[in-house]
Design a protein around this nucleic acid. Sequence first.
DNA 1: CACTAGATTTTCT
DNA 2: GAAAATCTAGTGG
Length: 198
Amino acid sequence: MPPKILGKEFYDRKSVIVANDLIGTKLVRLLPNGTRLEGAIVETEAYGGSRDPASHAFRGKTNRNEVMFGPPGRAYVYFTYGFHYCLNIVTNPGRVGAGAVLIRAAEPLLGLEFMTEMRGTRVLTELASGPGKLCQAFAIDKVLNGTDLTRNDSTIFLIAKSSTVNVRRSTRVGITWAKSRRWRFFLENSPFVSRKSN
DNA sequence: CACTAGATTTTCT
DNA sequence: GAAAATCTAGTGG
């Protein structure tokens, strides 16, 4: 059985469900020079649409977030704090207008040489233990915004997990609104998550 | 270890 | 102008 690329039916569900199921899947990034990068996703956060005050989609469609209002299974990449990119995957719009899952951290598996060079550190747990770090390690930037992750000729896609994993959940990180919603998901006992407690 | 400032784009509290 | 789904380098205990 060849590895299965996650398709539209996987992403076409509520963001909380997708965020939970994404833990343990493999992120694959193909670079223009042929280099292949792989990482196991260990941390995600779900964001809703117009009903979630912490979501970019809360205040309606803008140039930046328009991808969130499109079909599920596409990448929503945005630039934040003037320095960092964050990778999101669009999920089922549902009844709340739009939804997405923020990929917060991954365990580096393949292409470590490239990642250590991009990140300027050789410490494995520092390569992709945060949304900004992950994008730097995987060379993800604005040009990937809107990319369809479900196409098998895409330069970035996800592969289904081969075994079950223990997922834990907590409150989200770095937000001001709706802090009580426990929509952050991470792999139990993983040293590659962005924060340990909570 | 805890805390702080600063980098700088996008949006609007 | 200020804040934001962040990270790093610096200070001080």
